[in-house]
């Protein structure tokens, strides 16, 4: 019984990936289809989220070594990254500012209450750091984790569209856009485009996290929160 949650997740993921490879339709992204399939199964079998999570925790734990493994592409392409340091720092500093400011402003326009607004602010960075920033700001870390995932999903869908509409050609820009816009999920998506894009995305994800860590506690009070 212990292994059911884990096996189910792996099987659904595998199936959804196969489906996506065949159809190649953005809304059928394996992340989304897999998520919906699991939620449907949990609702049908009346299994609670905490039971499911405790049974599939091993997979969630693998996110840490996967983040560590990002050092490998970073090492492989380090010279390229050194050459484009201006692109990275400038675009990410602007990106992080836009992320925090627009999240807070839009949340206010949408009449979301204070706690939720504070939890939305750090949504653009990788989950563990976002939760940490949320704690510092006085938001709800668990809620931030959910917002981070929604950010990831929307970024994975929007990213390829934005690349096409804005006619973005360079691998560096494609990578930074994914890494800044939607953290780990975006990085995984960028690796589908190419090694260089993925590497730029992983570097951007790490850098964006550091920038937001320093920026958010200063910027959010300035926005009147």
């Amino acid at each position: 019984m212990m292994w059911v949650g884990l096996m189910m997740t792996v099987l659904f993921y595998w199936g959804c990936k196969k489906l996506y490879k065949k159809v190649r339709f953005v809304l059928l992204n394996p992340m989304i289809t897999c998520l919906i399939a699991i939620i449907v199964v949990l609702l049908c079998t009346h299994m609670s989220y905490s039971t499911y999570f405790s049974r599939s925790k091993l997979l969630a734990d693998m996110l840490n070594p996967a983040t560590v493994a990002l050092a490998i592409p970073l090492y492989r392409h380090f010279d390229v990254l050194k050459r484009h340091v201006a692109e990275f720092l400038l675009s990410l500093a602007c990106g992080a500012t836009v992320a925090v400011t627009s999240s807070v402003m839009l949340a206010r326009v949408m009449h979301l209450n204070g706690n939720i607004t504070l939890s939305v602010a750090p949504r653009s960075v990788t989950t563990p750091i976002a939760m940490d920033i949320s704690q510092t700001l006085g938001g709800i870390p668990a809620l931030t984790a959910v917002f981070v995932i929604i950010t990831g999903l929307s970024g994975v869908i929007l990213g390829p569209l934005i690349i096409r509409v804005c006619r973005i050609q360079s691998s560096v820009a494609k990578g930074t856009l994914f890494g800044m816009g939607c953290h780990g999920l975006g990085t995984a998506r960028a690796f589908e485009i190419g090694q260089m894009e993925g590497t730029c995305a992983s570097l951007s994800m790490v850098t964006a996290a550091f920038i937001t860590l320093a920026l958010a506690p200063v910027l959010v009070p300035l926005l009147g929160m």
């Binding site: 692109e87 400038l90 836009v98 939305v120 929307s154 990213g159």
Partner: peptide
């Protein structure tokens, strides 16, 4: 919540991508 996050994500991606592309 979804409108907030989707709009903000789109803004972030457009700004970041456009700036990196311009410098490149």
């Amino acid at each position: 919540i979804v409108v907030t996050i989707v709009t903000s994500t789109a803004l972030v991606m457009v700004f970041t991508g456009a700036i990196a592309e311009t410098i490149w």
